[in-house]
Simulated scan of single mutants.
Amino acid sequence: MEPTNDQYDIAIILPVYNASSWLPDCFRSIACQVKNKLKVELSVFDDGSTDDSLDVIEKWQPVLEAEGFKVLIGGHKEPAPKGVGFAKNQSIKQSTGKFLCFQDSDDMMKPERLNLQYTANLEHPDSIIGSKFERDPPESTIRYTHWANSLTPEQLNYQVLTSHGPTVIMPTWFCSREIFNRVGGFDEKGKGTPEDLIFFYRHLDLKGRIYRVDEVLLVYRYHPLSATFSIDEKVIWDLRLKRLEKQYLEKWTNGFTIWNAGKQGRRLYRSLQEQYRTRVVSFCDVDVRKIQQGNYIYENSELRPKPKVPIVHFTNGKPPFVICVKMDLTKGEFEKNLHSLNLLENVDYVMFS
């Protein structure tokens, strides 16, 4: 369908807060986008920056407009930022694009990003579209990058409960405005809130899907000032736990096994609601010392006698499993052990690592 005169095909959504040192590279990458005949607007919202971000934005506005982009600039000058969720919502509100391309101010797009993700979204209209990415510097978060770039199409929709968060990283998201409106926008509680994970889960709850363009379309910067480091780990844990209980444990009425008798497995056990904790039939592991303990006794339980959960070798574990073992840490041994049981992901086990 041809866009109307007042609606653009794509709105690039760019929230900004004290990003003046990163913005020139970000804008340069946007200016180099292959647009073909697409009508693209760049919607920038400055969340009360105290550096010269606004000056940089205004300096680049005519450069981007000369490349065919419509540039929208919004923001506020209040003494404190209102948060990434608020800034994203405002950026979207002031734009008209039928499709939304999310961009972080400290990252850079590859030239084909808009073109390839737009095409993919036309083919997968009910999906959040992501892409592969490369890290800068390259040696940062090697395990995380490998995990995100290696997920199969099925795992993009299954491995949503790991500590890594969404299976396609937020700075690569591309979706229709219709999806944004259906979900209801981003959470605006502010600093420490994983607004992307909350949106991601709501999208899945509404029967949405996840799709990835299997090309590197983003340079994803890693640095100490990244907003990622402001997220409250306990908030993320609680979101993951609530979803695990609702999506899986509620249905596993005949019991399940926690794969990992160590710190993370026991933390999961202690965190469960009592009705789900009683369904844990065993812990399983490969560590002989843990298995020789025989049982895990939940000392802090108010029940009498205190709950006693067997610790068994993984080959004696009863599926389904909640797996609390981190990938890529055992030189392939864990993955080999899991594969040997011929289990189906999302049926016989779920990853909660």
Rank of each mutant, 00 (worst) to 15 (best):
I30M: 08
I92Y: 01
S91V: 07
P15K: 01
V56F: 03
K70M: 10
S21N: 14
A11S: 15
G68Y: 10
V40S: 08
A80L: 10
Q33A: 05
D52C: 11
S43K: 12
Y8W: 15
D55H: 06
Q90Y: 13
A11C: 14
V40M: 05
S20M: 13
K98L: 15
Q94N: 03
C26A: 08
E58N: 11
D9P: 02
K88S: 10
V34K: 15
L72V: 09
N18E: 12
G97T: 07
F27R: 01
K70E: 07
P81A: 08
A11G: 14
Y8L: 15
E58W: 12
V34Y: 10
Q94I: 07
N36M: 10
A80I: 14
Q61G: 08
P81N: 07
L42R: 15
V84C: 09
K37A: 12
V84G: 07
S95V: 05
K88H: 08
L23C: 05
L42V: 12
E65I: 06
V16C: 14
P15Q: 00
S43P: 06
V56G: 03
K59H: 12
A11Y: 00
S20R: 06
G68Q: 06
L54W: 04
D9W: 10
S49Y: 01
F99P: 02
N18Q: 15
V63M: 11
P15R: 00
P81E: 05
G97I: 06
F27V: 05
L54P: 08
S29F: 13
D46P: 02
I10T: 09
D46N: 11
D47L: 04
P79F: 02
Y8D: 12
G68E: 03
K82N: 07
I12R: 05
V56Q: 00
A19W: 01
G85A: 11
I92L: 00
Q90P: 02
G97W: 08
L14N: 06
S29N: 01
F69K: 04
N18S: 14
T50W: 09
F69Q: 01
D52M: 13
F99R: 05
F86K: 15
C26P: 02
I12C: 06
Q90T: 04
Q61W: 05
S53C: 04
F69P: 02
W60F: 12
C26Y: 00
R28Y: 03
Q90C: 08
K88M: 09
S53Y: 04
V44I: 13
L72F: 03
A66F: 00
P24I: 04
K88Q: 07
P15F: 01
F69D: 01
S20C: 13
Q33R: 10
D46A: 08
S21C: 11
G48Y: 03
S29Y: 13
S29L: 04
N18C: 13
L64V: 03
K37S: 15
V71C: 09
A80E: 13
L42A: 09
V44L: 11
V71P: 03
I73M: 07
R28G: 15
K98G: 11
I30C: 08
K93Y: 05
Y17C: 15
